[in-house]
Design a protein around this nucleic acid. Structure first.
Length: 274
DNA sequence: CTTCACGCCTGTCAGC
DNA sequence: TGCTGACAGGCGTGAA
């Protein structure tokens, strides 16, 4: 499901509601979603803990608790976190409930059940490989043109697969990669190190732009994605190529095409993207 | 080390 | 209507 703009939107919509709240009980319907520690330990450690702060790194959400533990959630394809009151209708695919001290509930729902939850002391977060090995995020101080240029110059893989690699750039997923490549007019199958200095500059700018726009629009709701209070995003209205197969390119009027690149459905304009 | 195919799960949708 | 196959926003693993 969600990429960095969606996860950031969830963080923003949840933070005010959960920060300062105490978790009074955890109900787990599908224990295998809890990757660490065991589900009973997960429940026991979380019970009576207060959420101090809700942070994000790439596509991970991090709930910092008052006992130095951190609840880490990765939504993968269809995970959802939703803050509900007793009157709110509960999501059909709810698997975990975090019951709060004000009577409200933070729920974790997931149709494909590919999401993952962890709970560990802050100093052990490095054990989560995807978190500790993550590359710089778009819009961050570390994501410089110099870093991007140097990184791409060492890569023999297709540019699409490089941009999807979280170790190299943190937070991009299939939608925003297709969009960034469309904005920068670069063919997704180009070998990363073959990009010219100018193309690298355009692409760097395009990556930052699609992520900033995605956040500004509250994320892209293509099917499952909802924010922390159940609302859809609106960035789907602004997409140039993703999900627009056989529709006209807004730049040249030619038809948007779809093919498989790096094992992922890929949308692009064969006329504009070289 | 880099790159890629595959598996994990379940739901939806197009086509027959 | 019912069935089948393709496809779905991610990532860890293992093989080449």
């Amino acid at each position: 499901m969600p990429e960095m703009p969606e996860v950031e939107t969830i963080r923003r919509t949840l933070a005010d509601k959960v920060e300062g709240r105490k978790i009074i009980r955890v109900d787990i319907g599908l224990p295998r979603l809890v990757k660490w520690p065991t589900a009973p330990e997960f429940q026991a450690i979380l019970t009576d803990r207060t959420i101090r702060n809700l942070a994000r790194r790439g596509k991970y959400l991090l709930f910092y608790l008052d006992n130095n533990f951190v609840l880490v959630v990765h939504l993968r394809m269809t995970g959802r976190l939703c803050y509900i009151t007793p009157e709110t209708k509960q999501d059909k695919f709810t698997h975990i409930l975090f019951n709060l001290d004000n009577g409200d509930t933070l729920l974790y729902a997931d149709t494909r059940t590919l999401g993952t939850l962890y709970l560990m002391p802050e100093e052990e977060l490095w054990r989560i490989a995807g978190l500790s090995s993550m590359g710089p995020e778009p819009l961050s101080a570390e994501f410089t043109v110099e870093y991007f240029t140097d990184m791409l110059s060492k890569r023999q893989a297709k540019i699409k697969s490089v941009l999807l690699n979280q170790k190299l750039v943190g937070g991009l997923g299939n939608i925003y990669v297709d969009e960034a490549l469309a904005i920068a007019c670069i063919d997704p199958e180009r070998i990363a190190k073959s990009l010219t200095t100018q193309e690298v500059r355009y692409l760097h700018q395009a990556v930052n732009q699609v992520i900033a726009d995605g956040i500004a629009h509250g994320g892209t709701t293509f099917r499952d994605y909802r924010d922390g209070v159940g609302q859809s995003g609106s960035h789907q209205r602004y997409l140039q190529v993703y999900g627009r197969t056989n529709e006209p390119c807004q730049r040249c009027g030619g038809l948007i095409a779809r093919k498989e690149v790096a094992g992922r459905g890929t949308h692009y304009c064969p006329n504009c993207q070289k």
